[in-house]
Amino acid sequence: MTDRRQVLLGLALALGGPAALASCDQAATNDELLRSLRPDGRLAFYNTREYQFIGVLADAIIPTTDTPGAVDAGVPAYLDGMMAAWASRETQRQHKTSVRDVRARLTELGGRDFFQLSDEERRAAVAALDTAAYETQGPPTAASFFGAAAGSSPAPETPEQSYRALKGLIAQIYYASEPGATVELQYELVPGRWLADAPLSEIGRTWAE
């Protein structure tokens, strides 16, 4: 397993290296996203660079498609506020370490600073980290069922674990957001009925709760 991961990372690096050289003046697409990630007011928790990193990462994981993406849904600002208001000092410290570690690993995978990459390279780097983070995943475990109830999970130790924890948070905030719950998925504040057993085709998408 370790061998396969090393090969994979090597492949990403090999692809990222030359691409990095070729894309020095191709940062225009990034700028658009980064411009949109200028915080409106003062940030409560992140510094501007961290905030933009969360935004870029969230955009790679849950981009705008035919439905709104994580940035459209306000995930970076929500997370910024939540880390300031909810997290203890220790959790804040761990979280900042996680953000730093994930960014460092993506920089490694991309061949140069994550912010300097083109959209495509960024996605490739996140995809490579995602693959590495899940390749050791065995069959479903109790943890993978209950994992969404974050807060109780142990502090991540590797960049891969940090990435999964960040991804989980981003997803949780996205699917709890109004666009995530009502446009991407479907949500009923007051269902008004219990339909215990129906064809999925009639119900359509996953329910947000």
Partner: peptide, 9 residues
């Protein structure tokens, strides 16, 4: 429901 800890982006 949805699963935020699944492989893929």
């Amino acid at each position: 429901g949805w699963n935020g800890d699944r492989a893929g982006i």
